[in-house]
Design a protein around this nucleic acid. Structure first.
Lengths: 355, 355
DNA sequence: GCGCAGCGTCGAAGCGCTTCGAATGCGACC
DNA sequence: GGTCGCATTCGAAGCGCTTCGACGCTGCGC
């Protein structure tokens, strides 16, 4: 269905209400309407009422492009998503939702970019004044986008930490503290001999920040609390998990508190423990660092430190906004992890003799 | 007109290259640069070269807002995602990626909206000339957004069919044909007695289009090919699946070809069949209508009709573009389903006697 | 030799909005 | 009563781009 008026000069839509229309209808100057809307100058309450009434009546909506042109602010931020996503999808979605919602709360919209346009996409978007700032999700250690962001003429915030984060603003969960929380929880339940079952060895061998940080956090907490903790790298397949557990129990049969930081392996761990004669949580307590969904759908449900997707998204937007308004922000923002107790952790058992 | 002047009236960014700069540098009029870029008037090749060189040299990028203002086209489409997503997440992501990529190919960007802003969000976006058109994902039968779209001053395309699709442009998989394909596949393998295990009863009782269409497609194909097919609604829990299968085999022990259109139940079906003494695919062949991932990760992997997310996304964008350029498009676009043969289907067994 | 048709280019008029400086009106103050 | 200060409001100048009519030029037909 076409609207009338197809072939005029400056394409003139009959149905578009402009600020001029509002001004005329309210009997004020255009600038007055603008000031009512932006609040950048004081307007008498009678005038304000009148203008607002006209706006309402005419159904006026400011033209985003015109506004961007005149004010040099688009009120749009770019959200860069990877297309290859190693990330847990539900968590990603939570993040995205949180970002969009938070952005809307400060009157911004979100432009979606997939990574396949690569660095050039970033430059294009930024240079065209289409967005005021950029939010990058699912950052990798050696992220090709990181260097580009540094040279970009617009502020940006990363969710996650690349290997080289200098000069970049990053947000993520505080994995060091997450590790510590897990150990503290187990220690609080009376466990004295613990283990960390972490990511595959290769992950540690690359300088993958968050894996190291988790391990350091666990070890530090164990030392601080006077407990034993040994850390194991662990593959993701059932056989590898089984092998790791075998080694672990061989070295320390009395181990009763297990921290798992390996999303893929965690269900296999639960499945394998009974085969070593350990019931969860009666003989061994398990605490995981993983998305909520994984923790909840496990059997038994896992006590865990969650990825606080909501918070991360909100924080990221808030940081970006602060940068946009010329504020100064910390380079690194680490979110305080929260531990949720579920069915996989319980007070330490009285010592048993295993062979 | 002097360019110097750092602290004039309108905020002047030193780092922004405008079309005026390009024109001056190339020694032509501003309009000429514009025409080189848009190709809307013929320009001599020498001039074009010169202009393009200047653009390149200066690193010029048109200001999106200014362009939108003058041309009344934002070159942005809105993508509306639900926040509550009943949809299979990987499929959703595929769709989103496909949409973004397709849009970029026709020089459009994508503005992301979550549904929680509701109908008002749609109106806001549309009226502010921020987007030229709207793409709505994951449409429900009784979708609150549908009526709004009809009154919107911008074209829209839905992915999925609401109950009342009058006056709306919708795209989806052709479920009728999908059902038929499954039956044809089984018939081709020599199966004569088949069954359809569909969605829960309530889904049929609401007038849920795609469930009915699948069933009709299966029945029609069975009749056409001279085979037996009975359709069963089926719940999603293991006990319900077990019960349905029990009924099914009680009524027709010789059933050897099973079509499953129930994502949630399909794994339970595979798990339950052995308990009825049926091996897959030796005794019973199973064909599913489900996302690729589900089919691939099942054991045995499922022969299935996939949701062609890529195609759907591409089609949706292409339809929207056609509407934007004043073209006329069909109300309903049904995508041809493709069946992928995997390990769950095999030639019909020689008749066996079950009790 | 003159008129005419195109081609290629230019100049100017906006698109709808923000923002700055200036104008207005009013009570207060000397 | 004149002047100053304050609170409001107005007018106009752009923001960077597109688009339309106009114009100069060349080559052609008569």
């Amino acid at each position: 269905m076409t609207t009338g008026e197809a072939h005029r000069h400056g394409p003139k839509r009959a149905d578009m209400v402009t600020i001029t229309d509002v001004a005329r209808h309210a009997g004020v100057a255009v600038s007055t309407v603008s000031y009512v809307l932006s609040g950048k100058r004081s307007i008498s309450s009678t005038t304000r009422q009148r203008v607002l009434a006209s706006i309402d009546l005419l159904g006026y909506r400011p033209h985003a492009g015109a506004r961007a042109l005149a004010s040099r602010r688009a009120n749009v931020i770019a959200l860069v998503l990877p297309l290859r996503t190693g990330m847990h999808l539900p968590v990603l979605m939570q993040l995205v939702t949180a970002v969009v919602t938070s952005a809307r709360q400060v009157d911004h919209d979100v432009l979606l970019m997939t990574a396949d346009e690569g660095p050039n996409g970033l430059r294009r978007i930024a240079a065209s004044s289409m967005v005021d700032g950029v939010l990058v999700l699912d950052v990798e250690m050696s992220d090709a986008r990181a260097p580009v962001l540094r040279t970009l003429e617009r502020p940006s915030v990363l969710i996650g930490f690349p290997a080289d984060a200098r000069g970049l603003t990053c947000v993520d969960l505080d994995f060091h503290q997450a590790g510590a929380r897990c150990v503290e929880h187990l220690a609080g339940l009376g466990h004295t001999r613990m283990a960390l079952l972490g990511a595959p060895r290769v992950v540690y061998e690359r300088d993958t920040g968050f894996a190291h940080r988790t391990r350091a956090g666990c070890l530090e907490a164990a030392v601080r609390l006077g407990r034993t903790l040994s850390a194991y790298a662990c593959g993701e397949s059932p056989p590898e998990v089984h092998a790791t557990l075998a080694t672990l129990f061989a070295q320390d049969p009395g181990m009763s508190g297990l921290v798992v930081h390996n999303e893929a392996a965690v269900t296999h761990v639960l499945a394998a423990l009974p085969r070593f004669g350990r019931r969860v949580p009666d003989d061994v307590s398990v605490v995981a660092i993983c998305p909520d969904q994984v923790a909840e759908s496990a059997n038994p449900s896992l006590s865990s430190v969650l990825i606080p997707a909501e918070d991360v998204g909100r924080q990221a937007v808030s940081l970006l906004m602060r940068k946009l308004t010329g504020g100064t922000v910390p380079d690194a923002t680490l979110l305080v992890p929260a531990l949720t107790v579920r069915s996989s952790s319980a007070p330490a058992p009285t010592p048993t003799h295993y062979h």
